Amino acid sequence: MKVLVVYTHPNHNSLNYSFLESVLKGSESNSNITELQVLDLYEEGFDPVLVFHEHKRRRDMHKDVHLEKYRQQLLWADKIVFIYPIWWGRPPAMLLGYIDQLFASNFAYKDTKGLFPEGLLQGKTVVCISTMKGPTFYPLLWLNNAHKVLMKRALFSYVGIKRVKFFEFGNMESRKGKQTKKLQKIDRYFQRLTR
């Protein structure tokens, strides 16, 4: 299994970075994971801003040479792991900009004459590890599960990815947030991952 980890947090002293380290630690002792790449969007200097004009059209995004490296990473991976904070009920703009540009027509999906497109990333699986200041139940009760609906239905299902696992960790700025226990949970999950 080839794993691509897309890490989206500007601070390497953050709890999110500790979750990245737990993913790496657990993966090291898992013989099912043969290769692993980390894409740190902030460290990479990824530009999340969409630009369209007469020479750069949206319908041609799947051919943008500046994005070829990232497209190849997505094609290479069997499993894509996203690590990010939830800010204002959704992933950071940096990650959304990556999604906007990479999950493009004629690369991640193909328009059909039917109601839904043909997903071109079928067979891949996704794990989303997210942290938030508020309680874990906040997105479900207050935001109608908007985060999971956005990621699973509006994005991954659209491009053909059916298996999506979520770890939404709340109360992460609290002294009673059980951070160590949650980091260990991620470590164990990646130690035991089979597909």
Rank of each mutant, 00 (worst) to 15 (best):
Y158V: 10
N16L: 02
S174Q: 13
G134E: 13
P48C: 14
K69W: 08
W88H: 01
I99K: 06
P92V: 03
N16S: 11
K63C: 07
F19V: 06
G160Y: 02
G45M: 11
P135M: 12
Q184W: 00
P48T: 13
L74Y: 08
T34H: 06
E43M: 10
F46L: 15
D47E: 12
R90Q: 08
V6K: 01
K2D: 07
W142Y: 09
L4A: 03
H12M: 12
A108L: 05
R188Y: 13
V49Y: 11
G160I: 05
D100A: 05
Q37K: 13
D111H: 08
L36W: 13
L24G: 13
M132L: 14
E168Y: 09
F116I: 12
H53P: 03
V126D: 03
A93Q: 07
G89R: 00
R192T: 10
Y84Q: 05
G177A: 04
L36T: 02
N30V: 15
K69I: 10
L193V: 12
E28Q: 12
K185F: 09
F116P: 09
K133Q: 03
L95N: 01
K162M: 14
E44Q: 10
A77N: 03
E21W: 12
L193H: 04
P117N: 02
T180Q: 04
P139K: 09
G160C: 11
Q191P: 07
N145S: 11
M132W: 00
G123D: 07
P92T: 07
F137R: 14
K110I: 10
L67R: 05
V23M: 06
Q191F: 08
G170R: 06
F107D: 06
F190T: 11
L41Y: 08
D64A: 06
Y7V: 03
V126T: 11
D78Q: 13
C128M: 14
K79P: 05
G45C: 14
L24Y: 10
F103V: 09
V6M: 04
Y7F: 15
F52V: 15
F137V: 05
F116W: 12
L143S: 04
G26M: 01
P92Q: 12
K110P: 04
P85N: 02
